[in-house]
Structure formats: C-alpha cells, structure tokens
Nucleic acid binder design. Structure first.
Length: 698
RNA sequence: GCGCGAUUAGCUCAGUGGUAGAGCGUCACAUUGACAUUGUGAAGGCCGCAGGUUCGAUCCCUGCAUCGCGCACCA
C-alpha cells in the first residue's frame, strides 16, 4: 500500500541508488536477453564547465538527454550516455581571476605550477558538486565512463590531432593582429568577440592635402600610410605619391596606396593605415609590403599608449583620445568632429572591455579545408540539425569562415605542445632536447572539446567501435559554432565521420518575463533548489512541456508547481488503483467500452512513440500528461468507480484489471519524463516484471 | 550591410490546406468519498497588415510593419 503522499524528498535518493545498484546505466551490464542483438544508442553529454554549479540550461539538457536515453533503453537498445566535465580554459580562468581578485591576488604574480594546482583543485571540487547535481536530476548516465577534458588520455588525443594538423599544414604559427582583451591579457578567437553598438565622435583629420575620418585618432602614431580605393577618381592623382602632413610630433610623410578594401563611399574615401592596431589595415599592409612600412606598435597589452607617442605615453586609450584630439585642434589638423557616429565596437564577451587589436604570433587553424567537408557532410545528409533552420545558420557560418586563433595567453588549459629554439619550431609532447623552450600558451578550450565525441570513445577502444558515430548531440543553440561545427570539422578530420547523426539544439531558459536568467539580474531559478522544493520530476516536466527545438523556454515556479500537482495526481491514481486491488485467478471479461479504452491507450502510445522518435519531446510530454489526467483519471477511473464499488466479483475484477493495465502502461510511458515517481509506483505494482522500470519493455 | 527567426485566447506557447488548441490565469457551480484539493462548465481570438495561389489559407507565395537573434575588417 502506498503512503498517502508522494514524498520526493525521501524517495529520490533512494530510487537513484536503486538504479545505480542495478548497473543498468552501463550498457555492458544491461540484461543480456534484451541487448543480445540490439542496436546501440549513444549520447555524449556536453561536458559542463567545471567552474561553478549547474544552472537551468544544464537541467534542460540533462532532462532531454535523459528522456532520450531512458526511452531508447526501454526500447531495448544498448544505451550509453557518457558524462563528463570540461576544464573550460578561458572561462574557468575568468572565474578564478575574479576569485583571486577578491583575495587581493593576481594570477600574473603566482608561479605557473602553483596556480595550476589551485585551479585544478577548484575544478575538481566543482566537478564533484556537478556530479551530485546531475544525479539529483535523475540522469541515467554511465558514471563508470565519466571523463574530464584534462584526463591524460584525452590530452594525448588532442596532441595527436595538433601534430597531425601540423604535418598536414592545417595549423600554422603567424604574426597577426589578434583580438586582445586588455583586462584578461589574452587573445580571443573571433567567436569570442561581442560587437556592441556605440555612439562615438568621428574625427575628421587633415593629412596634408587629404582629409580622412576616424573614430580612433589615438592610433595616429601608428600610421604608416594612407589608402584610397583604386577606382576613386578624386584621389587618382595621389596614388603612389608621398604626401607631407603636419603631425603632433613633427612633419610626417605618408605614401598613398590604392587598395580595394577601401570603401570610397565612407567618410572622405581616404583611410589611414595603422597595421599594428587594426586587422584590416594589417591585411592591407600584407598586400603592400614592398611599398609601405609594417606594423608600428603604439598600444601595449594593458591598452596604454607606448613607443613613439610623445607626451601621451602611458595614457589609457580613452584618455589619450581626447587629449590627442585637443592637440590636433591646437595645431590645426582637426577639421571637424561628427559627434554622433554610431558604429560597432569589438568587446570581450566575458568582461565587455573594448578589445585592442594588437599584433601577436599565435597558432592558427586553417579553416577552409576543414569547413568544406563539413558543409558537404550536411548537404549529403550525413547528419542533420534540429531545428532545420539552424542548418542554414551553420552553412552560412562555415561558408564565411576565417582562420581560427587557438592560442590563449593563460595557464589553465592544455598547454600547446610546441617548442622553440631560436627560429626553430618543433611539435612534440616532450622537450625535444636541450635549449628548447615550450610555448607558454594553452589551447582554446574549444579545440579540445571539439574533439570530445571521438576522444571520449577512443580512449576506450571498444566504445569507439560500438558507439561511434553517436546518435544524438543535444546542446544549446548558442554553441552551434563554438562547439557543434568544430566537432563536425574535427570529427571528419580525425575519423572521417561526423560524430553524430542528429544535432538537437535547445533554447535558452528565460524567466516568466522572457528575461535571460543571469546572476546579476537576480532572476535565476536554481534547478536544484526547485527540485528540492517540488521534486525533480516536476522540474523535468516543466522543462519539457513547451520546449521546442531552437526556441527559448520560459520557466516559472508556477509552472513547476503545476507539474508537482501532476506528480501528486499520478501518485494518487496509483494509490486508487492499488487500493481497489481484486485478488482472483479468473480472467477479466472486458466490455466493448473497456476494449475501446485499451485500444485508445494503444493509439496514444503509438503517438507518443512517434513524437519521441521525431524529437518532439514537448508534444510527447503534453500528450501523456493530458491522457493520464483527463482521460485516465477523469473518465476511465470515474467510470470504473461504480463497478468497483457495487459490481459482482467478476465485474470488480474486470474493472480493476482495466485500470491496472492502463496504470502500468501509463507509468511506463511517463517514466522517461518523470523517472522517480514512476519508478516508485512501479516498485509497488503487482504487474512488475523487472527489477526496475528503467528496463521495462516500452 | 548580409543572414535567420517571430507575430495565434489576459500570460506562456503548441498546431493543421477545410471557418482554431493546451497549460496557467479569470468567472460560476459542485465536492472533504485516491488527489498538498479535485471535478463540471463558462467567458475570452478579424491566428500582425496588404496582396496573390486555391473551390477554400492561420497554415503556401510576395510585399510591408513591428520585435528578437546571429554573422560581418566599413576606418
């Protein structure tokens, strides 16, 4: 007999332990009779960053992945859901920097090894917390295979890839103007740049006979040339000539070159070339190396003026800009200022600092040769992305891809296995010999996580054979380029195959006012907190209903409470059915109405199955919810009540058998969504055939 | 600038070539007999606007408006 109420607080842990004890999370330990000839099913869990606790976004992913895994496991597949955690290089470094800052410390003053150990311990602690949280959410993943992105075997895979790419000419070290964050003191990839709209003054400056417009007069000291469009008739007479101009530090001479990158319609159609502090200018210089001088660095890594800048040395950019404009006015080369020029400024996606383009030697991945097969693979139907529209976004990005800077000037991450001696470079895991110094930089974390599916399976050889390519990659649409596209490219490169067949992208979790949840807004709903309050099943259901691929999902405590009520309803349905148990060896004599109910149930199940196969989790969940509450409870059970109360024994038996059958099927269908309450009910069912509902036959 | 979406009941969102659905909310009534209540019923929508295709469009096409997002070396 069931208790009068479903007590999630006391039952959830007990139930999870029961599952773990069964061993069925591990595909190798599933009941043999069910897996002998069965197909594999594999999801690699996106490894959460080991730099904090799980949030609602993680809960969405874990819920959907668990629904798929449980569904397929019940269908008899050999299911592997492989969990892990990401060291999350830069992101963790940022979190840790903040911590150091609070303690009045600075990472640049801590020896590399000591800092490494501290961050290592920090991530290991987070990893443990996240593991406990994942369990609390009911995840039926195989903990015996849990992997960390810094596990030595994984690091070896990453090294192999880098070496192979180096051999194949797909990585190169080059001096380029990179996206430099003056706060975090590292370069960032193009994806880590966030462009924000700003309103700045546009300065019109005289360069001898020419005038040009710029928002960055402070870079004036780094100018090495002027440029115009080759077809611009206004300036044809100046092309190839050297003009003389008045400068802050004295007279200047600039050659005027012609380059197609100059837009004659913008400003005056003349630009100054500052190769050290503007990526476009740097590229223009590479096309005119014979004609004009190269980069002249006048901004340092902290974003201060340096070098030949006269009295402005040491000033921060913003301050220097105003003072320099003032000076230009004094000497009469400032023609005018347009006050409200709206433009996009590159900022650090983490701290919002304005990025400083500065030249740095870095490792780059040549992307075109990797992107092309990734485009072809999608077009050839080797995998698909849900929602479908994301495929267009994926293709658009790949078609316009640029080389990828994978060097980061931080210590937390996989150190780049490159060694330098004088002008020589060698790629090697170990020091090649005396006198060789290792590159101090680490890889962009996405360079290693981009290899995650095959890395996690390759380090256990059999798994790669059995489970690669995996079936589903479930993750957020915000990391389609960061992660998914790179996994496709690197997967194709290393294994010849796309690492997954279906990519399912979920949306961002928003609060009831559609606001993005963030700590600073204070509108964060902690998934573990509400799970504690209303039960994990309620949280999972709230995260599933109304959640469609690629769209943001709105969650509120009201919604969760609603599904808590549903859990209670299900529990009470079970209580009612079991309370009315009729013991008899006789067979039930189903009426026409009964048979109609049973065939309707069958149709329901077919529909739910179809929805799950189509990744329409929200529709499957809603359908079951509606069926259990408004069909089973409201109609079928209500109709059974008089039969159970007043009928003859055979009548009572039939009515009982009817609702017991429907209950059994209902909890099975509901199990992938609400695993705890359904398991607890199952454990009390007379029709129970398996140790746990988790391996019941769907 | 290029690209991708969205626009359906008060709110959050599903959905289909044949004159619209769910959850929550609201209102009325019933109910302590499995249910931290639950049940029954009701109100509430020119399915953004304008054209087109069609026997017929909320659903397909075109344009427009508004909102959102992504990408981008316009100084």
């Amino acid at each position: 007999m069931l208790d009068t109420r479903y007590d999630h607080k006391n039952l959830e842990d007990k139930i999870y332990k029961l599952w773990e004890k069964s061993g069925y999370f591990n595909p190798d330990r599933l009941p043999k009779r069910r897996t002998l000839n069965s197909k594999p099913f594999c999801i690699i869990m996106p490894p959460p960053n080991a730099n904090g606790a799980l949030h609602m976004g993680h809960a969405v992913g874990i819920t959907l992945e668990d629904i798929m895994t449980r569904f397929e496991r019940m269908r008899g597949k050999r299911t592997l859901w492989l969990p892990g955690a990401d060291h999350a290089g830069f992101e963790t470094q940022v979190v840790f920097d903040k911590k150091l800052d609070k303690e009045g410390r600075n990472r640049h003053k801590i020896p590399r090894e000591k800092l490494w150990t501290e961050i290592w311990n920090f991530t290991q602690k987070n990893k443990e917390t996240m593991q406990a949280q994942t369990k609390k959410l009911g995840a039926s993943c195989d903990w015996s295979r849990e992997t960390f992105t810094l596990d030595p075997k994984v690091v070896d895979v990453v090294y192999e890839t880098f070496e192979k790419m180096h051999r194949d000419g797909l990585v190169y070290r080059d001096l380029k103007v990179v996206n430099w964050c003056p706060k975090h003191q590292t370069a960032l990839s193009d994806l880590e740049v966030k462009y924000v709209e700003r309103n700045d003054p546009l300065y019109h400056i005289k360069y001898g006979p020419l005038t040009l417009a710029t928002v960055r007069p402070e870079t004036k000291f780094g100018d090495t040339a002027l440029a115009v469009n080759p077809h611009d008739k206004r300036y044809r007479q100046y092309i190839g000539k050297t003009i003389e101009a008045k400068g802050i530090l004295g007279p200047l001479k600039f050659k005027v070159i012609a380059d197609k990158a100059v837009d004659p319609k913008f400003g005056t159609g003349v630009v100054k070339i500052t190769p050290a502090h503007d990526a476009t200018d740097f590229e223009i210089w590479t096309r005119h190396k014979d004609e004009i001088p190269g980069p002249k660095v006048i901004i340092d890594e902290r974003g201060c003026l340096t070098g030949e800048v006269g009295e402005f040395k040491g000033l921060k950019i913003a301050e220097a800009r105003e003072k320099i404009a003032e000076k230009m006015r004094e000497i009469g080369i400032l023609e005018k200022i347009e006050p409200d020029y709206i433009h996009q400024v590159a900022t650090c996606y983490k701290c919002g600092s304005t990025l400083e383009p500065i030249p740095k030697p870095q490792w780059f991945v040549k992307m075109k040769p990797l992107a092309e097969p990734a485009i072809k693979a999608l077009k050839a139907g080797k995998f698909r992305i849900l929602p479908k529209r994301s495929e267009k976004v994926y293709l658009h990005w790949l078609r316009n891809i640029r080389d990828w800077n994978i060097s980061r000037q931080i210590i937390w991450g996989i150190r780049i296995p490159a060694w330098f001696r004088g002008s020589e470079t060698k790629i090697s895991k170990k020091r090649p010999g005396p006198g060789w110094e290792q590159d101090p930089d680490v890889f962009d974390t996405w360079f290693s996580s981009g290899q995650w599916p095959y890395a996690t399976l390759q380090i256990r050889g059999g798994d790669f054979k059995n489970f690669y390519p995996t079936d589903v990659m479930e993750t957020g649409y915000d990391i389609l380029f960061f992660w998914v596209a790179r996994m496709v490219m690197l997967g194709l490169y290393r294994t010849g195959k796309v690492p997954f067949k279906t990519v399912y992208l979920h949306g961002l979790v928003r609060d009831k006012d559609r606001q993005k949840m963030s700590k600073s807004k204070g509108n964060v709903i902690d998934p573990l907190g509400v799970a504690d309050l209303y039960g994990t099943d309620a949280v999972r259901m709230a995260l599933t209903v109304g959640n469609t691929a690629g769209n943001d999902i709105v969650i509120s405590e009201d919604k969760i409470r609603g599904y808590r009520n549903f859990a209670t309803k299900v529990w009470n349905i079970a209580r009612f059915v079991l309370m009315n148990k009729v013991k008899s060896g006789a067979k039930p004599k189903f009426t026409a109405a009964d048979r109609k109910h049973l065939s309707y149930l069958k149709r329901m199940k077919t529909q739910v199955t179809k929805h799950l196969e189509r990744f329409e989790f929200h529709l499957a969940a809603e359908k079951i919810y509606h069926y259990i509450w408004h069909e089973f409870a409201d109609k079928i059970i209500e109709a059974a009540k008089p039969r159970l109360k007043n009928g003859k024994k055979s009548e009572r038996l039939t009515a009982y058998k009817l609702i017991e059958t429907i209950l059994t099927e209902s909890v099975k269908m509901l199990h992938p969504f609400m695993p705890f309450v359904t398991e607890e009910i199952y454990q009390n069912l007379p029709s129970k055939k398996e140790k746990v509902i988790m391996v019941e036959n769907w």
